[in-house]
Design a protein around this nucleic acid. Structure first.
Lengths: 296, 296
DNA sequence: CGGGTACTTGACTCTCATCAAAGCGCGTGG
DNA sequence: CCACGCGCTTTGATGAGAGTCAAGTACCCG
């Protein structure tokens, strides 16, 4: 899709990139993973997982644009992302998409289907993907004998819940600029965790999808990225993002008004942006303060 | 402003109110519930729960304003609300509260503590409460022998996840008026489910807390309630809310501009408000439409 | 190349936050 | 029992942030 102008550092990325299918073995012409590999992928401590090589979970591949599951479809599977990038969306009563998450390596999908036995969201591959299938019924019964597995389930579900709580807090309380900044930081962190570069990466999603995820319009996302670029917090070239000042991004609440950052060198502007964040961070923070945004 | 005209049916509310502690038995001067009672409370089908009267869970009472657990506190308990009203909040880095939920009878709290073994949120009683304690470790090990219990756990956690997803969708895509409208509807539904009146109830939370929950300011909440009152969708008297037109509220996206609803009788205004909702609902809904709000 | 999709940028609008000032209600203490 | 005070709520005026509409550009793919 966006191939040419980043071809130069694709090699670098490929080098940093784990080989993708490192987990799993061939069998019957398909990939399979054992319990330990799944736990490792999910970052769940799996101390004494017994010899579980007879306990294998099958992989499935999806190509860009394919749907993994749709809303209302009968639930029977959980999915763990082994490689690739996806989005999960809600479709409202008017057919509009609301992006809920961007699952990538190590994330679990499908948990929202357990309750009603039907998936509550839709998952779509944003790139070619390799997913591990976890049949839920089988998994639950296994959990009864393998305590670690049960812990894994509870842990992953709880983690997901906490993640969504953080999302709600962000949507409820942060400005557009702060949302975009945190989105970039969290992406960078996840890339780092996966062994990619956290300083330079490719967005796998469109501005529209980012906007939907953050509760903003695509124009606002685009403008905000441009503004960050202008003050030197990041570099933007289409879907290629370079993180220049992660700390300032992490703490950013509001950029100085645009008229105040007209003709000047980037360093000075960046310094002031960072300063704005620091100032906010150092504020006394009365417990009774209004919920939204400190002054700059 | 609008104080007197609902005092007349205050008594009716008290009558509709269940007696609160109907679940549970006395023992050692305290209330205890068995597994079946807990499942019923959570609305989890519990077909063949064996004789589990030796499996008892203790109740605890909290008074208005008391904290059930705080952020960072070591996790060991889940809580099920047997009676009363609470809020759960996140505290951001500046000390501002972000309300995450308003748990009431049948809701489970504390699930966010499983992952890190520390509660990720804080729970506060908005009224006197009676909670059932579920020691998590004990519960998990019981789940291995009582399959229904395990299903209950997964089901409740998944349900919570779906609820938060809906919240994210709402925060990301709806106008202030639509958010308040849906908040009222969802409250009404929950009251109905609990056996209270869904037409007339008391808010247990302040405008500030509602605003925090919905990502709005308290002034916007207040103004929106007043506007709904003005067009006859609801009646408002401080914390007492009367639902007049639930269907219009459910579908409402945007009220007609205020200048268009100046001097006129309420019925006509309500009709137009409902119509606005219907119109939006009947729209063709192209899949590619912008994420936010149809026109009126 | 040419068509289409994604992205950027500008001008304008409008919703909602902010600031401010009164009412109202309820509990406390005189 | 009433007066006082404080927190909650309402309402108004104002403005800033973000959405909407509209070109125009860059990029991708057949």
């Amino acid at each position: 899709m966006q191939s040419t102008h980043i071809a130069d550092f694709r090699p670098g990325m490929a080098a940093a990139q784990p080989t993708g299918h490192e987990a799993g073995r061939q069998r019957q012409g398909r990939l399979w993973s054992n319990l330990k590999e799944v736990c490792d992928l999910l970052h769940i401590p799996s101390f004494n997982i017994a010899q579980t090589d007879e306990l294998l979970f099958q992989h499935v591949q999806f190509k860009t644009g394919q749907r993994i599951h749709t809303i209302g479809q009968p639930f029977d599977m959980l999915y763990v992302v082994n490689s690739g990038f996806l989005k999960t969306v809600l479709i409202d009563e008017f057919g509009n998409e609301q992006v809920l998450s961007f699952p990538m390596k190590g994330d679990m999908m499908g948990v929202d289907g357990i309750h009603t036995r039907h998936y509550a969201s839709e998952a779509v591959a944003l790139s070619d993907c390799d997913l591990i299938l976890l049949p839920f019924r089988k998994l639950a019964s296994l959990g009864r004998t393998h305590v670690e597995l049960e812990n894994m389930m509870y842990g992953v579900m709880s983690r997901e819940l906490v993640r969504e709580q953080a999302m709600i807090g962000m949507l409820g309380a942060l400005s557009a600029e702060a949302r975009v900044a945190r989105f970039l930081v969290s992406l960078a962190d996840r890339f780092a965790q996966m062994g990619y570069s956290s300083k330079l990466f490719n967005l796998r999603m469109t501005r529209h999808e980012i906007g939907s995820y953050l509760g903003l319009t695509l124009e606002t996302v685009s403008r905000t990225l441009s503004a960050f670029n202008e003050v030197g917090l990041i570099s933007v070239d289409q879907r290629t993002i370079g993180i220049k000042d992660p700390d300032a991004l992490k703490n950013l609440r509001r950029l100085p008004p645009s008229r105040a950052r007209g003709r000047q060198n980037g360093a000075a502007a960046r310094a002031r942006a960072a300063e704005a964040a620091e100032t906010a961070a150092a504020a006394p923070a009365p417990h009774t303060a209004p919920p939204l945004l400190a002054a700059v």
